[in-house]
Simulated scan of single mutants.
Amino acid sequence: MDLWYTEKQTDNFGITMKVTRTYENEQTDFQHLTMIETEEWGTMLTLDGMVMTSVRDEFVYHEMVAHPALVTHPNPENVLVVGGGDGGVIREVMKHPKVKKAVLVDIDGKVIEYSKKYLPTIAGELDNPRVEVIVGDGYMHIAKHKNAYDVIMVDSTEPVGPAVELFSKGFYQGIYEALKEDGIFVAQTDNPWFKADLIQTVNRDVKEIFPIVRVYGANIPTYPSGLWTFTMGSKKHDPLAVEAASIPEFETKYYTPRLHAAAFVLPKFVEDLVK
């Protein structure tokens, strides 16, 4: 008998995949966590019934959270990642030698624990001496660290459960205050097919706080609709002003210097959402 995992992405649509093994199936203090082995996507982490990451396509999301902001900021020495307990964004951040310290704050220590155990190619840099891992509330961490970071990256789940406050205007204001005078922040902002209202709300809120706001996209097949957006807020530096020739070389599978500017070219219906 075959076992299949299905993520119900809307009331009328979902994705499904064949599962060959279940490693963990646990209700943590914050969310329902599963770590499964899938035939098509390899080892996969899900939280509250939503795919967070899989071995086969994880590089797209993690590279696109990290690199556009880090190449836009001229000297990103201190970086904060809120969420992201699987370690993928931290892995990409560590590819930038200008980063002296990266702090990861995830509210659920089980995500970190199981990612280290079952997703070593993703979580492998969490023990890097340049990385500090904190199990705690990212919202409160930001509130207590004014003018502390050059770049802040919000690697959250969709706005359900413990992640709801990470999509609030108050959180974005806190991020602004936690950034230095030329700081940059980036957050995943879901997909335009099913969450158009969310993208519009986030874009409006961030524009009321940051002078430079850019939305960009990527293709991530295991995420709802496959088309995913990210929103960048910057106090000073515009990612569209970055020239491809100035971007240093580092190992990637999706992001490239030429892709940097292209990622900010949105389909017309997405462009209309954020005008």
Rank of each mutant, 00 (worst) to 15 (best):
P120M: 12
R56M: 12
F250P: 09
H73P: 02
V265D: 06
V65H: 13
K100L: 13
A187S: 15
D127E: 15
P267K: 05
D205K: 05
A102N: 11
Y176R: 10
I112A: 08
Y255A: 12
I107L: 13
V274N: 04
T157M: 14
H237Y: 15
L166A: 02
K110W: 09
P239F: 06
E165I: 11
Y172F: 12
G109A: 00
G109M: 05
T16M: 14
A148M: 12
H62C: 03
R56A: 12
P257I: 04
K195Y: 14
G138R: 13
N147Q: 13
I15S: 11
D11C: 05
M44W: 02
P76H: 05
T229N: 09
K235Y: 04
D11P: 14
G49K: 03
L126W: 00
Y5L: 13
V89C: 07
Y149F: 13
L179R: 09
V135K: 06
L119Y: 05
D11I: 04
V270E: 03
P129W: 08
Y223V: 03
L45M: 14
Q31F: 01
Y114G: 07
A244G: 10
H260F: 05
L104V: 00
G87K: 08
K8C: 13
D29T: 08
D29R: 13
T6E: 14
V242L: 00
D205T: 01
K116V: 09
G174P: 09
T252F: 10
Y172H: 07
I142N: 05
E181T: 13
L45H: 00
V215P: 08
E92A: 02
W193L: 15
E165F: 09
V81K: 07
N191D: 15
G87A: 04
A245M: 11
L166S: 01
G109Y: 04
V103G: 04
T157I: 09
D150G: 03
G170L: 12
L240I: 06
